[in-house]
Design a protein around this nucleic acid. Structure first.
Lengths: 168, 168
DNA sequence: TCATTCTTTCAATTACTTTTGAAAGTTCAG
DNA sequence: CTGAACTTTCAAAAGTAATTGAAAGAATGA
């Protein structure tokens, strides 16, 4: 398979994967493109490679930066901004995990805690079934929260550990 | 908080969580409703509780059954079909993991394996960057695949172990 | 068999999301 | 300052997904 073809296929595959996970297609495609390019790209480059508009490019690049998956790179003597993606997929995974935990899991846990306090007679089977379900889900949410935190933590200490060694 | 209010809030929260994870809102809401109800509900009941149409109800219930999250329950002497949800959230999580692995991860691994075989000179930095990225992602995908399989496996053996004890 | 009750399908509609591109905004060298 | 190079915004348009409800299809039992 030729590089150009492989590239196109990778971008398209990553794009539809993203879509299935509730990440917009263009965002995933820009991320894919930046991951496989050796050097940073400008907004123009991205527009040309993916055939998308300026606004779309800007918006999605901004969002990727927000998620911590892409960074702005300034090339000395150039006016344009360039962008490059994190290439270590483990780092990508922890960043996504951290971000989704913050945006989605934390609020859910808050709500579940409130729902625990539903009034009513425990002998009423509707009340009982509700309490049981919420308790069950709440336990699960807390367990998941702990697991994600550990995952993020372990990656962080690996990162700082490695960084530290460089200066030792 | 009153039960009715808590119920409504739980259904709505679960619904928007689903939407964020690429599961359609109605499907998640039906699942939530069935989880907190002590007894199975009919299609009519679901329509009334969630204010949705017959077609919508049918379609999403069918999909939930497909995912293994909901089952048809026949009540003796009744013509209608009733539905009830799995209430053990760990079982729900493994079922979802299994289903998504099958639908999403397995095809991605297949594609990545193909993309490994891109032609070209290793000294070309574009070729090198591409190969490196794919290799990296491929390793990650395999690791994830193994982790999910282990997770599913452990839950299964727990399930069959428990089941076996009942007949021993 | 037929009438009844329930389930499934699907084309049309409605609601939601993404994308575009022109215009406004910003930055900076000269 | 000024204007060229670049970035950001945003309202309109295009694209996608969910929902409805009426009609067709199955199953049941008298």
């Amino acid at each position: 398979m030729k590089l150009a073809e492989a590239k196109a296929q990778f971008i398209q595959t990553w794009g539809s994967l993203g879509a299935q996970w509730g990440i917009n297609r263009t965002m995933a495609q820009i991320h894919a493109l930046l991951m496989i390019m050796p050097d940073p790209l400008s907004a123009e480059d991205i527009m040309a490679e993916l055939n998308i508009s300026r606004g779309n490019t800007n918006m999605n690049v901004r969002e990727l930066i927000n998620w911590g998956l892409v960074e702005r790179v300034l090339i000395p003597g150039e006016r344009k901004e360039y962008f490059s993606a994190e290439k270590d997929i483990w780092k990508v995974a922890t960043d996504i995990a951290r971000e989704r935990k913050r945006r989605e899991l934390d609020p859910i846990i808050k709500t579940l805690n409130q729902l625990q306090e539903v009034e009513g007679d425990t002998k009423d089977k509707h009340v009982k079934a509700f309490r049981d379900s919420i308790l069950n889900i709440n336990k699960f949410a807390h367990q998941t929260d702990k697991t994600i935190s550990t995952f993020i933590k372990s990656e962080e200490s690996w990162f700082y550990g490695t960084l530290l060694k460089l200066f030792k």
